[in-house]
Design a protein around this nucleic acid. Structure first.
Length: 418
RNA sequence: GCCCCCAUCGACUAGCGGCCUAGGUCACCACCCUUUCAAGGUGGCAGCACGGGUUCGAAUCCCGUUGGGGGCACCA
């Protein structure tokens, strides 16, 4: 039997990174086994908010590189079928009506158990189980009925979901049994925490896929990082491209303890991916990013700035602060300026021809000799004058790209302000 | 309160009874390189939650304790 899994988000708010990690595991599992991966929205109502949320979810998954088979389906679409099945169960005696609702009979003794693909054997005393409501008095099926029902109807072979569903599983197992369905393999993936060991939330930083995108993370890095959150192919490998992840992923190697989301490590990994990009590819991503963030900076100049920053920044989101001086005026801190150095620099650079990295470098090195100063002492005030910061891309390249005229203007203005 | 799950460096993890003097990666520290910042190189710091067993031998198996998480809805 071929593998079929499903990603089942609820259409509320933005796609949470913890949920995405669960979807990623589903996707990796299916793709590595030539299986199918469905997208099913677990909605309890419809409306414009839902439609927008679904669109948002699809866009986020698409950006990340997670795809799905067939049309997106909606739980609510099977409302009638659910009611039908519930009535059938009543007719068969495994369920009964209770004040307008339909409840399923749960066993009073024994244990309900299954072999979880991640956590191993799990057993619940059946006495813990209440007769759960299948269909509410208003006719809507409950989650614990609709979900296993749809898994069955969709031919889902493996249910890979967050471990907050562990205690729902025995209930769903009984629903399936009453329905006459063969239960799928269950795999409960541990949750993801924020750095304080609490549930990942807003105050930890980015949590939705959208936020990671606008912070300037690239999808390949985010996918690689997420895959490693709770899973490892061995003790050594860290950087893995999409195909390698697909090839190597197994549920057996998903750990059973919760993982903490480490933003610093994600930053590092994002930098690794960013640096590995071919220069023109990097420039293209940078352009898309800058544009997407709403900056109306000239694209050719952004492209020209790309090589200056590729080695330097770990997130595209650092670009505006790091290289913004190429696109807008600066306000240097007078305390870091040095009128003497700036005056000499203005004069020397004024005669630099052509205005290119080699000539600029030669000019500045000579300036150091003439002033009898270390490059450190000479370059700082110039850097601050031109870029407005003591941290910037390479000075020669920055001057070249900024252009002679603007560079000299800024140096002159800074000299006056010093 | 009851039920279920989890427990290796600060973080992600490798380890599935002897290859462990517990390995890798991030972070951190030091040094090197260097026009700043990065990147890169070298070295370093740091861990089997605790207590009992089982065994010739335990990070690995069993029990308990503690700690964390999840659940106990006509929510999903």
């Amino acid at each position: 039997m071929s593998v079929r899994v499903r990603m089942a988000p609820s259409p509320t708010g933005l796609l949470h990174i913890g949920g995405v990690r669960t979807f990623l595991f589903n996707w990796l599992f299916a793709r590595g086994r030539s299986g199918e991966c469905l997208l099913r929205i677990e909605n309890t109502d419809t409306g414009r908010e839902v439609a927008e949320a679904v669109e948002q979810i699809e866009r986020s998954l698409h950006w990340l590189g997670i795809d799905w088979d067939g049309e997106t389906t909606f739980q609510l679409d099977r409302l009638e079928r659910a009611q039908e099945e519930a009535r059938r169960l009543v007719a068969e005696g495994s369920a009964y009506e209770d004040e307008g609702a339909i409840r399923i009979r749960m066993p009073d003794e024994g244990v309900t158990s299954w072999d979880d693909a991640i956590k191993g054997r799990i057993e619940f005393p059946s006495a813990e189980l209440e007769d759960l409501v299948l269909v509410r008095s208003d006719g809507r099926p409950t989650y614990n009925f609709a979900s296993p029902l749809e898994d069955w109807l969709d031919g889902i072979t493996h249910v890979i979901r967050g471990d907050d569903h562990v205690s729902n599983t025995p209930k769903q197992l009984h629903v399936l049994r009453a329905l006459g369905a063969e239960p799928p393999v269950y795999a409960h993936v541990p949750s993801v925490f924020g750095e304080d060991g609490r549930k990942l939330s807003k105050r930890h930083g980015a949590i939705s896929v959208d936020e990671f995108r606008s912070a300037g993370y690239v999808p390949e890095a985010l996918m690689n990082f997420l895959a490693l959150l709770g899973w490892a192919p061995d003790g050594e490998t860290t950087i893995m491209a999409r195909d390698e992840l697909v090839e190597r992923f197994t549920l057996e190697r998903v750990g059973s303890s919760p993982a903490t989301f480490d933003y610093a490590k994600l930053d590092w990994m994002n930098g690794v991916y960013l640096r590995a990009l071919a220069p023109d590819e990097y420039a293209e991503r940078l352009r898309e990013y800058v544009l997407g963030q709403g900056f109306d900076w000239p694209e050719d100049r952004v492209s020209a700035a790309a090589p200056l920053v590729q080695e330097k920044i770990a997130r595209l989101g650092e670009f505006p602060a790091f290289a913004g001086f190429l696109f807008q005026d600066v306000e240097p801190d007078p305390a870091l300026l040095d009128a003497g150095v700036l005056g000499a620099a203005e004069e020397a650079l004024g005669e630099t021809v052509p205005w290119a990295v080699e000539a600029i470098e030669a000019t500045l090195k000579q300036l150091c000799d003439e002033l009898g100063e270390k490059p450190r002492a000479v370059y700082l005030p110039i850097r601050v004058a031109v870029t407005g910061s003591r941290v910037s891309p390479g000075l020669y390249e920055s001057l070249e790209l900024l252009g002679k005229e603007t560079s000299l203007e800024r140096i002159a203005a800074a000299r006056a302000a010093a």
